[in-house]
Structure formats: structure tokens, C-alpha cells
Design a protein around this nucleic acid. Structure first.
Length: 525
RNA sequence: CGGGGCGUGGCUCAGCCUGGUAGAGCGCUGCGUUCGGGACGCAGAGGUCGAAGGUUCAAAUCCUUUCGCCCCGACCA
């Protein structure tokens, strides 16, 4: 059953990729390390990549994505006349996930449709990106998934822009900012919001140390000092980026989003500093940390702090804090970046209406890669003037198994699954209540033949089981339509037709019931 | 990687604290009854208690080590 759904999803994806001019490939899943070293991602991918060695000791990788391999293939392109190209495959990817979970949602081995576009000009990339965008909208619509395109972080993929296709589900792993008023949609790893300006009072307070015994948190300080509400405080987070100690500054009531920190710093590995590292470097424990007077350490400050003054922060000595801190005058900020995670209820960046945060499954992701891989993998073609040009690329993915899981998450009820007809393992289930009854079986076979003739996938339940068991199983597996043949109704010349979705049974006559059922199914399809 | 939990018939679990006969429900096999919403009776099969070591007269139970799985935090289709 699962395999049939998987195959149907793959086929829908395939049809839509073909419709935008995609050319299907099937490239190796096992790659020589040299390709990944060439792009630099042998290191970047870190522990997420499965690695192995052949008998000669040569390094190999199991493909987690195929930018390198397709790019390498694209080095055989030599003329602008061969562009654009749009290549795709549906193939197994391997990722050594830190935590595989949730059935099919996050696994270490999964089928993915990945496609890659190659264009000479940026406008061509824009077209390929738009074409994928539209194809994805159609794919998810056909799959029965209410997927919304959202602005996203590009993460390890790099590139200039990316859009994720998100399906709302509590089983998901991403939070998406949604503005119902203007349609703004962005992953919290990327999205921002409108904040009310905080008027700092210029009351002549100057930079000053003051004792704060026992204060270990933003809340503690706010309680002790009436002026020091969380909004008036600077939160200092000590992070280690690729082994280098770094400070991230945020407004006291704001949360750090790690992906934003990663994106704005280009770091590969990020972790919070240990208590020992913090003590060693700043001389105080968390709760009394600050960036005032700190030299020789990179300091990234959130945009919400820009221009603020007369604020509170730790003095880098336990039980002491500072007041009257001006970001401009007292803190050496290496870079101003967007670091804070937006929360529900904040104002939409575009229109100011209240944002909602919705938990979603990431079903697809499309990237504008630009020339990053084309350059590192050495793709170049001659343009009309005979000059070498590096093409620009896009990369686009849909997880097939994850789509199946997302469909299951969104199409079920208490009794079981309710597959949308486009991906259902079978269109029609014929439930024969008494398989020993000759006339029942005769009609079942006739119906099966008629449905098959019409191109439908049919499953006949002629198991020797009690009716209750068959009905319960029928609902559990979620075949969209059921034709029930039982001796009791047969004597009255009747069949039953039941759509799984509504559960409303319609009585049909034996004479034209098969045709009528067929019509209903075909109309829905 | 950090924190928490769990490994006992095919499945879901009890038993462990307080050491002494390995149990339940479901599933499975046979026979009979039953047969339009997950039937019932009778009879039966099936377990190195994750693995290794230790303590003990005696270990599923206590101790140590180890492997595997699940859940919560940082990654991604």
C-alpha cells in the first residue's frame, strides 16, 4: 500500500517536472570524495554526510544531494546554445541525521526529486525558479497538500534566494510566520517583524557600575531595578562559531535564532559556549555578562539594538551590572545583523498586522544558487561573443516519502487514512461480505473487470473474515471508494457505494450500479 | 553531542522497588458454534527476559560494562 502511494506521488512529480521541460536522469548515489572536495562541501557537510572507503582506501560519500554531481556533468556543456538545461532525478539520498524521527518525516535514507537548472543569465535563472515555483504549486495541489510558499533560509546550500513549500501540521518541525492580512509568509529562520520603537530617555544617566547581588537573569534584574525592564536590557549570549568564541547581543526580551546567526556569520558549526569558556573569556558567569569594553572578540548585535542607549547589561563580574549603556558609544559591535526570532503577535514587516506562527512540514525547497557551484566545479560555456561565461544555477527538491507522510498527516480521521484519489493506493475497494456466495463473487469479478477497463486501480477484499473486520480494515487503509457486495442486499437487487471521506452509503442497483459507481469515481478523479 | 526513558513469546506491556514457579491482552494453530460493523467456547504452540561480566545457595529482578531503540534540545526534502 505504502509503495503504491509513494509511486503515485513520484509519478505526479515526474509529470510536472516533464511539463516544465525537465529531463530525467538517474545518477550514482555513491560519489567520489574528489567532487565534494572540489566544491568545498566535503568539510561543510560535516557529520551529516555518510562516508566510506573503497578497498584501495579512497574516500567516497553517499550522496545527500547532487549539486556536485550534476555540476560535474554540466562541465560537458560548451556553448550558450546548449542552455538552458533543466535536469532532474528521483533518487535515494543518504543523510546521517542527528536525530531521525517521526516515521517517514525525517529519515536517513529517502527518495528525493532533485532538479538543477543551468542558465547563462540571471533572468534565465529567474525563469527556471519561477517555473519550479509554479510546478511545485501544481504538484502539491495534485497531492492534496495545502502547501504555502514561504521565504526561507538557504542554510548550507548557499545562494541568493530560497523558497520553502510548507504544509501546516503539528507533526512538522518548522515554524512559519504568516500574515493573514497581506500574505507575508516566512520561516522564522528568515522572517522579521515590525517592532515598536523604544524611546530611550536621555536623563543624563552615564555609564555606571552598580551592585546586583544574586541577579542571574534578565527577569531578576528587571525585578531589582525598576528602570531595567527586559526591553531596557542587553542580552549577551556567548556562542562558539567554528571554534571561535563570539558574542551575540539581543534585546533582553528577544530570543536568538541560531539559523539567523549561522546565516549572517557564515559559520558551519555553532554551539553555546560552556560555562568554563565563558568564565575564562569574560570573567563572569551567565547572568552578569556584557559586551561593554570587550575587545578581541567578535560581537554581533541584533538590529533591534541599533541606536539604543541608557540600557542595562552585565558588567562581566558576578553580582555587578552596568547602567547607562549606549550601544554606539560603549560597545564595539563588529556587525549589525538580524538575529532575533519573531514571535506570534508581532507586527508584519510589510503591513503591520499581527503575525501568526504556524508549525509546518517542509515539503519542498527551491534555491537560486547563482554561480557558486558552477565556478567551483568548473562549468563554463562560450557566449555569442565567443567569451567564456559561467552559467548560473538553481537547485530544487521535494522529498517523496516526506510528501507521503505529510499527506497522511493531513488526510485521516479517527478510523484511519483517507487518501486523496490522486495518490490513493487503490481507487476502489470491492468488499465481498460472503466470498463463498457464488453470485456475490460473480458480481465482484464483473465490477473489478469494469473498473480495470476504465483504468482504475481496484482491490477486492474476498478474505474469509467477518464483515466488521472488513469494514474496519477498509476504513483503516483509506481507499477512497468502496463497493460493498452482500447477500442481504443482493436479494433486493442492491449494491452499496460508500465514499470514504463522507462515509455516506448510497444504494445502487445490481443492474446499473457498477456503471453508476464508475461514473462517481471518474467524476471525482 | 547534551538531557530523559525503554529493551521480557509475533505485537502492546505487567513482573524488577522488597532476588526463589516467567505472566496478561491481542495475534497465531486445531475443532465446534457464529457470520452486515473489529464474535464465542474448548484445546494448543510459542520466551537465550538485548548482550557480556559480577554479587548470591539462587538473578528478568541487585551491581558494572556494552549494544540497540524511543522522546526532548542544536541540522534538513
Amino acid at each position: 500500500m505504502g509503495l503504491r502511494v509513494h509511486e503515485k506521488v513520484a509519478q505526479i512529480v515526474r509529470e510536472e517536472m516533464d511539463s516544465i521541460g525537465g529531463q530525467e536522469f538517474l545518477l550514482p548515489a555513491m560519489h567520489p570524495a574528489s567532487l565534494w572536495k572540489q566544491s568545498g562541501r566535503w568539510e561543510v557537510m560535516g557529520d551529516d554526510m555518510f562516508r566510506l572507503q573503497d578497498r584501495g582506501g579512497a574516500d567516497l560519500a553517499l550522496g545527500m544531494t547532487h549539486e556536485e554531481v550534476f555540476s560535474h556533468l554540466a562541465t560537458s556543456l560548451h556553448s550558450y546554445k546548449e542552455l538552458p538545461q533543466l535536469w532532474y532525478q528521483i533518487q535515494t539520498k543518504f543523510r546521517d541525521e542527528q536525530r531521525p524521527k517521526s516515521g517517514l518525516l525525517r529519515v536517513r535514507e529517502f527518495a528525493m526529486k532533485d532538479s538543477y537548472s543551468f542558465d547563462l543569465e540571471d533572468t534565465g535563472l529567474d525563469r527556471a525558479f519561477e517555473a519550479h515555483h509554479d510546478a511545485y504549486v501544481r504538484i502539491f495541489e495534485r497531492l492534496g497538500l495545502d502547501a504555502m510558499p514561504v521565504q526561507a533560509s538557504s542554510g548550507a546550500m548557499g545562494g541568493t534566494a530560497s523558497v520553502e513549500f510548507m504544509v501546516a501540521s503539528p507533526a512538522g518541525e518548522d515554524d512559519v510566520l504568516v500574515c493573514e492580512a497581506c500574505g507575508y509568509r516566512a520561516n522564522v529562520e528568515r522572517g522579521t517583524s515590525r517592532l515598536d520603537e523604544v524611546p530611550d530617555k536621555d536623563d543624563g544617566t552615564t555609564l555606571e557600575r552598580f551592585p546586583t547581588p544574586g541577579v542571574r537573569s534578565i527577569a531578576d534584574l528587571a525585578e531589582l531595578e525598576s528602570q531595567a525592564s527586559a526591553v531596557q536590557q542587553i542580552k549577551t549570549m556567548v556562542m562558539v562559531l567554528d571554534g571561535q568564541l563570539t558574542l551575540a547581543l539581543l534585546r533582553g526580551d528577544h530570543q536568538l535564532n541560531l539559523q539567523k546567526l549561522q546565516d549572517s556569520t557564515g559559520a558551519i558549526e555553532i554551539r553555546p559556549a560552556t560555562a568554563e569558556e565563558t568564565l575564562e573569556t569574560l570573567g563572569a558567569a551567565p547572568g552578569s555578562l556584557g559586551a561593554v569594553g570587550v575587545e578581541g572578540i567578535r560581537v554581533f548585535a541584533d538590529l533591534a539594538l541599533q541606536g539604543r542607549f541608557n540600557m542595562f547589561t552585565g558588567a562581566n563580574e558576578d553580582d555587578w551590572h552596568l547602567r547607562g549603556v549606549s550601544l554606539e558609544a560603549d560597545v564595539t559591535v563588529s556587525e549589525w545583523v538580524d538575529l532575533r526570532e519573531v514571535e506570534a503577535g508581532e507586527g508584519c514587516i510589510d503591513c503591520g498586522a499581527q503575525l501568526a506562527v504556524i508549525r509546518c512540514i517542509e515539503a519542498g525547497h527551491i534555491f537560486k544558487l547563482g554561480r557558486k557551484y558552477a565556478e567551483s566545479m568548473g562549468i563554463s560555456v562560450l557566449d555569442a561573443d565567443g567569451k567564456a561565461q559561467v552559467p548560473t544555477m538553481g537547485s530544487y527538491g521535494i522529498g517523496i516519502g516526506r510528501a507521503v507522510a505529510a499527506i497522511a498527516e493531513n488526510h485521516h480521521d479517527e478510523a484511519g487514512l483517507v487518501w486523496p484519489i490522486a495518490v490513493a493506493p487503490f481507487h476502489m475497494l470491492i468488499t465481498v461480505l460472503d466470498p463463498d456466495d457464488q453470485s456475490s463473487m460473480h458480481i465482484a469479478e464483473k465490477a473489478e473487470a469494469a473498473f480495470r477497463e476504465a483504468g482504475l486501480d481496484v482491490l477486492v477484499d474476498d478474505r474469509d473474515a467477518r464483515p466488521g473486520v472488513k469494514f474496519a480494515d477498509a476504513e483503516l487503509v483509506g481507499v477512497p471508494f468502496r463497493l460493498t457486495i452482500g447477500t442481504r442486499n443482493l436479494e433486493k437487487g442492491q449494491l452499496e457505494f460508500t465514499p470514504r471521506l463522507t462515509g455516506d452509503t448510497e444504494m445502487l442497483t445490481v443492474d446499473d450500479g457498477i456503471e453508476a459507481a464508475l461514473d462517481s469515481v471518474l467524476n471525482t478523479k
